[in-house]
Amino acid sequence: LFCVPRHYENDLEKVIIPHGLIMDRTERLARDIIQDMGGHHIVALCVLKGGYKFFADLLDYIKALNQNSDKSVPLTVDFIRVKSYCNDKSTNNVKVIGGDELSSLSGKVSLLGSDIVETGRTMQTLLSLLSESNPKMVKVVRPRLRRSVVFVFISDIGFEVPDAFLVGYALDYNEYFRDLSHICILNDQAKEKYRV
């Protein structure tokens, strides 16, 4: 019943979070951030590649709220890239690209926008890297959290999701499916079709 690109129609098991629901929850997260952090200068750090869509949508909502509410949040934006997957398995090796410029976070409030928490290894690596820059505070915002994993350092979570391989809304399988608007479960045939 949902619109998906024709080239992915046979690759998806099901849509678990439709795009409209994602946008509604992202707007709520933006409101919570303004409420909690209004008045602080925030360095918003996007974790690429899987976090780019959520990050852009979240910042759009924050900008709109900055213009239309009593509280506002001054923002600067930066990016860092993390890679830890091949096919549908974690490589147990977290590669961080672009972490050499994080010294600008010293003494500032950081908003870390990323994609999904699964094992927590990537987030632990990122938080350790950020702590070396001595930020005043780090707030982690993620659109998705696997049901089987709970961490105390996650500040705001958009959705709790099943322990399945998810694609869409910038989550990929070997760089495919980032252009899918909904969050979906990938079927087994597609895992074979796009395997590297």
Rank of each mutant, 00 (worst) to 15 (best):
F2N: 10
C3F: 11
P5A: 08
H7R: 13
Y8W: 14
P18E: 15
L21T: 12
I22W: 07
M23V: 11
D24G: 08
T26F: 07
R31N: 09
I34C: 13
I34P: 04
Q35I: 03
D36M: 14
G38E: 11
G38R: 02
G39V: 09
G39P: 10
V43W: 02
L45W: 09
C46T: 14
L48Q: 02
K53Q: 11
F54I: 07
A56N: 05
L58T: 04
D60H: 11
N68W: 01
D70T: 12
P74D: 06
D78R: 04
R81P: 01
K83C: 05
Y85T: 08
S90A: 15
S90T: 12
N93I: 08
I97G: 02
G98P: 06
L102V: 09
L102A: 03
S103D: 15
S103E: 14
S106N: 14
S106T: 09
G107F: 08
G113F: 04
D115W: 00
I116F: 07
G120W: 01
G120Q: 03
T122A: 14
M123N: 07
S133N: 08
R147N: 13
S148P: 00
V152E: 15
F153P: 07
S155Q: 05
F159T: 05
E160W: 01
E160G: 02
P162H: 09
F177D: 00
R178W: 04
S181M: 04
S181P: 14
C184N: 02
L186P: 09
N187F: 06
D188H: 11
E192W: 00
